[in-house]
Each structure stands twice: as structure tokens, then as C-alpha cells.
Amino acid sequence: MLTIGERINGMFKDVGKAITSKDKNVIQDLAKKQVECGADVLDVNVGPAAADAVAAMRWLIESIQEVTDVPLALDSTKADVIEEGLKLAKKKAIINSTTAKKAKLDTLLPLAKKYDSGIIGLTMGESGIPRDRNERAEHAAVIISACMEAGIPIENLYLDPIILPVNVTQFQSLEVLEAIRDLKILSDPAPKTVLGLSNVSQGTDKRSLINRTFLVMAIANGLDAAIVDPMDNELMDAAITAELLLNKHIYCDSFLDAYRKK
């Protein structure tokens, strides 16, 4: 599984504070720790606090790339913030994210093409959050065909079926699991799938347990990538073990260490 570390996000208090006070150490520390814990990609989101979001993105990326060279996922609703990130990223980045809305696709797909980046496509459209697996597949099909028209290889696309908090809408978890399977048959080569995992446990009392249980179920359904907190050790252990049981890694007694040494 491609692990995208979620912690460098201005929504988190420590990060928001570091952005306003320009405290590089906090950001660099989080970058290093996430990579040590197994993050393959680091998500970067300036959050709501920054007055100048483009400048904040620039500062975050420069700070991060001083200490690690893992690829970045550029997480913003604003195209100019994303493009600033694409310009600075040393490795092939991932745009986080487009939806099936025409205006979004028209703005972001040209950027993905220009910078040969990956792109996450949320399976939601003009009508808002998808209600079931079918609506997810519908939006996914729109995104896939838009990518094909724009000349973006499907290998660069990560479809996110959008998980909602289990305490808000409980039946959606199953819909998402089914959607992960459904999305895979929409094109050949199959699009990759990704989840912003932590949303499933938003506002609940047992966040870590719910996160890791759902992640294991999603992996069993074929999930390729997840935006998670890699510093949640039990979560990472569960994900590694799930992949082991799916015969994706060769067993040895120290299989957890072995995976982290990859």
C-alpha cells in the first residue's frame, strides 16, 4: 500500500501554529517522523490559517524538502496553491484533489498533464457527496474519461470513493468497500484507489481502532493507497499484516521490521 502521511496539514493545531509563526522545526520533525514510520508520500495542506496560501505552500515545501526527498501530495482547493507546489516539488507529486465537477477537471487536469503528476479524483460531482456505490462509479467514470481526453495516463490516477464518518452515516462504509472493487473494473489498466482514511472515525470515541479495522477491510478489497497518520503504529502494523496475509510480502518472523526497512 502506498502510505500518504496526513500530518502536515494546517488543520492540525501544531502545524497551523508552525505555519503562522514560521517554525520550521515542527514541520521538518513531522516530515522526518512520518517517513521513518513508513510514509511513502507526504500530504501537504496549508490549512485555513495562512493569510497567503501560496506563500505558505512554498514555505512548507521548502522546509520539507530540506530534510526528505519523498514525493509530496499537494492538498488544496485552490489551483494556484497546487501549482506553486508542482513547481517546487523535486519528485513526481500527486494533486490532492479533483472531483468529477467540470470546473475542477478543467482547471486541474491541465496541471497534472503539464507537470506529469499523479492526481487524486474524489468520486463526487455537481450533486455533492455520493449516496451509494453506483453514484461513486458514475463520478469515477466521468473522471476517467476526462483523464483519457486530457492525455493523462490512468496509472497516474487515484480514485477516492470518499468515506464518511461512521457515526454520521453508517451504511456508507460498506458502499465504499464495494466501490473499491467496482472502480477497478472501469478501465484497463485499472485506476488506483485511495482513501482519506481518518474521516471514517471523525467524532467517534475509538478513532484508532475504527481507522485500522476499516483500513484492513479496504486493503482486502484491493485498496492501493491511503492518506493516514503513519505515526499510528498499530494502524501501520495492521496494514502491513493485512498485506502479508494477502501474500503481497514474503513472511519472516520480523515481517513488520522488514516492511519498514523497504
Binding site: 514474503i250 513472511y251 519472516c252 518472523d253 520480523s254 521490521d257 522488514a258 526497512k261
Partner: peptide, 12 residues
């Protein structure tokens, strides 16, 4: 499985 384990033990 043991081949992989031995390599981990040595690199550790």
C-alpha cells in the same frame, strides 16, 4: 522465510 529473517538479523 528464514532467508529473509537471517538478512534482517544481520542488517539489524
Amino acid at each position: 522465510n528464514i532467508a529473509k529473517q537471517v538478512n534482517i538479523l544481520i542488517t539489524d
